[in-house]
């Protein structure tokens, strides 16, 4: 039952983008007499400037994150945190992914792949990992891109609030997987 609902949702999602790309101009032209081609080109011009504007911010954030990952600092942090988290029922197997998720999209996908290869996609670790991956975003990347695109450098409470969301999401992933899938 749930399987078929999910399958049809994921199936339906395939149609959304083409329907939007065609449907919006169609509505605009047919109902509102908008000059769709001219307006499209006018809007599309901004794509270049915005994409170029985020480069320096993205370089800054990704370089720092890349160095952090490559240096092994994350592993040292894991060794410190594992015993304490194990004590409160957070599986140490899922800790690297929980820490990596806000930092790097490709890094956390790699860790999820490892989890699935090592424990099998039917294992609780894999399910917790996949839940974590699907329920959260790469916080630092989103911050660099979104704030960078408008030149905001003083982020105020964005980082603490985002990380609290990530933390609660990771704990919730463990909680709900243990509750519903075991």
């Amino acid at each position: 039952m749930i399987e078929s609902i999910i399958e049809s949702m994921n199936n339906g999602a395939r149609y959304i983008i083409p329907l939007l790309i065609v449907g919006i101009p169609l509505y605009a032209m047919a109902i509102k007499q908008v000059k769709v081609y001219e307006v499209f080109v006018e809007g599309a011009k901004d794509g270049f400037t915005i994409a170029i504007r985020i480069i320096p911010y993205l370089v800054a954030i990704l370089v720092a994150l890349g160095m952090f990952r490559a240096s092994g600092a994350l592993d040292i942090l894991l060794n410190f945190l594992s015993p304490a988290l194990n004590f409160v029922g957070f599986p140490p197997e899922n800790l690297p992914l929980a820490l990596m998720r806000p930092l790097s999209g490709s890094g956390s996908l790699g860790l999820l792949t490892d989890l699935i290869n090592e424990h099998g996609s039917d294992s609780l670790y894999a399910k917790i990992g996949a839940t974590m991956f699907g329920s959260s975003e790469t916080t630092f990347y989103v911050l660099a891109v979104y704030f960078g695109s408008v030149g905001v450098v003083r982020s105020r409470h964005a980082i603490p609030a985002g990380l609290i969301g990530d933390l609660v999401g990771a704990i919730a992933a463990v909680f709900f997987c243990k509750l519903l899938l075991t």
Partner: peptide, 15 residues
């Protein structure tokens, strides 16, 4: 991708 969606967005806005 930015150009594509910002173009479509502009149409959605104008309409």
């Amino acid at each position: 991708i930015m150009a594509l969606w910002l173009g479509i967005m502009k149409i959605a806005e104008k309409s």
